[in-house]
Amino acid sequence: MEVTRVKNITPELFIEKCIKANQPIIVTDGMEHWDREKFTPQYLKATFGDQIVQVYNDLFDLQTIQTLSEYIDTNFDRAPEDGPAKNYMRWYTKLKEVEFYWSDKVFEALKPAWSQPYFIPDTNLVIPSNHKTAKRPINEYSYPYKGLFISGRGSRTRLHKDPFMSNAVLCQFYGQKEIYLYSPQKEASVMNGTDFVDVKNPDHAKFPNFKNTTPDYKDVLAPGEIIFFPSGWFHDVTCLSDSVSITWNFVHETQLERMTKHIAAHPEDDQLEIMQFFMDGEVSESTDLVQYFQQKYSVGV
């Protein structure tokens, strides 16, 4: 089944039918007024080619750092006999207090070329917090896991779900991506402890329930389309061609109870450090996050 495609969806309807109902969607007109020529591999290489980028395998393990030019030269326009690209370039903006090769300066330079998608809320956010600003447009502010994905044909992000019950947004500028989506109700079939099944080469001994499990959605994301991955949904993404995308995560105030329950059940989640980074100094490392959200927003667990 393909993901529902829409255009001209209002922000109110998106919140009701996608965020609150926890349903994926593809919006086909959310990038119409963006300068997509600024997000081609040719432009990015010519403008930012000497910048150091982060290169990962299909399980989010950092493999190397190299220049953007080196990554594109090695992994784009590969001949068939060279096989698919094996590594995936994820170039994130700053997401915690460490010195690293972040992409913030690149996003600052690209700020005029894109904007907040008209249907995605930039108010009433919990993560990142709206504490210090009424609106938080994506091209001007930091968000968790905000990054450029510049990835050669065949590179893949294996099945996962996004941290601390956040939603993810993926905007496709260049190339196509094949996407498998599994609902949160299929967790027992696609996970074993903290491990996720490889949906394209499953180990049925380790994941016995996966044998009769099918994706809720299988689709191909095309240039100019934006897909919304709701909290808790499992997704596996493969680049069918050389690809350029932008991604970020957020939690809306209507999802507070769901997020708080996750924090209570997983207090040792190492991604909570990143969540705290985007709370505008509202909490310290010693803050009891469950208690904080209960008191601030009157949510239960």
Score class of each variant (00 low, 15 high):
residue 259 M to S: 01
residue 79 A to S: 13
residue 241 S to G: 09
residue 18 C to Y: 06
residue 44 L to T: 01
residue 68 L to Y: 02
residue 287 T to L: 07
residue 16 E to N: 09
residue 282 E to L: 15
residue 263 I to F: 02
residue 83 G to T: 01
residue 70 E to V: 13
residue 56 Y to R: 08
residue 79 A to W: 06
residue 99 E to C: 09
residue 186 K to E: 11
residue 46 A to D: 11
residue 33 H to V: 12
residue 149 F to C: 05
residue 248 W to G: 10
residue 120 I to S: 02
residue 35 D to F: 07
residue 58 D to T: 05
residue 209 N to V: 12
residue 90 R to P: 10
residue 41 P to M: 03
residue 14 F to Q: 00
residue 95 L to R: 04
residue 223 P to V: 09
residue 216 D to T: 11
residue 61 D to N: 14
residue 223 P to M: 02
residue 187 E to V: 13
residue 77 D to G: 11
residue 288 D to R: 09
residue 191 M to S: 08
residue 286 S to D: 03
residue 23 Q to R: 11
residue 289 L to F: 06
residue 29 D to N: 15
residue 273 E to C: 13
residue 92 Y to K: 03
residue 131 H to V: 13
residue 55 V to L: 06
residue 272 L to F: 01
residue 90 R to T: 14
residue 129 S to C: 11
residue 20 K to M: 14
residue 190 V to M: 06
residue 256 L to C: 05
residue 204 H to Q: 11
residue 280 D to T: 04
residue 4 T to W: 07
residue 121 P to N: 05
residue 189 S to M: 12
residue 144 P to I: 08
residue 280 D to S: 13
residue 44 L to N: 00
residue 29 D to T: 07
residue 196 F to Y: 11
residue 140 E to N: 15
residue 288 D to Y: 07
residue 81 E to Q: 14
residue 170 L to W: 01
residue 36 R to L: 14
residue 3 V to T: 08
residue 209 N to P: 01
residue 86 K to W: 08
residue 17 K to P: 05
residue 252 H to T: 07
residue 170 L to S: 11
residue 216 D to A: 00
residue 140 E to D: 14
residue 237 V to T: 09
residue 261 K to D: 00
residue 245 S to L: 14
residue 220 V to C: 01
residue 270 D to V: 12
residue 103 S to V: 12
residue 43 Y to V: 13
residue 4 T to S: 13
residue 243 S to R: 01
residue 77 D to W: 08
residue 157 T to Y: 05
residue 178 E to Y: 12
residue 300 G to Y: 10
residue 87 N to M: 10
residue 289 L to C: 08
residue 86 K to V: 12
residue 225 E to T: 10
residue 254 T to W: 06
residue 281 G to I: 05
residue 231 S to A: 09
residue 4 T to Y: 07
residue 271 Q to K: 13
residue 177 K to M: 01
residue 134 A to L: 15
residue 301 V to H: 04
residue 205 A to S: 12
residue 193 G to C: 13
residue 134 A to E: 15
residue 94 K to E: 00
residue 276 Q to M: 15
residue 62 L to S: 05
residue 70 E to I: 12
residue 23 Q to I: 14
residue 162 D to I: 07
residue 181 L to S: 08
residue 78 R to K: 11
residue 208 P to F: 07
residue 63 Q to F: 04
residue 149 F to Y: 07
residue 280 D to Y: 06
residue 112 P to L: 11
residue 128 P to N: 13
residue 42 Q to H: 06
residue 118 Y to W: 10
residue 225 E to N: 08
residue 12 E to I: 14
residue 275 M to Q: 00
residue 178 E to C: 12
residue 89 M to E: 04
residue 181 L to E: 01
residue 219 D to M: 04
residue 237 V to A: 03
residue 138 I to H: 07
residue 208 P to N: 10
residue 40 T to M: 05
residue 218 K to S: 06
residue 283 V to H: 04
residue 72 I to K: 02
residue 80 P to D: 03
residue 187 E to L: 11
residue 256 L to R: 00
residue 31 M to H: 02
residue 287 T to H: 06
residue 88 Y to W: 10
residue 227 I to P: 05
residue 78 R to L: 05
residue 234 F to D: 01
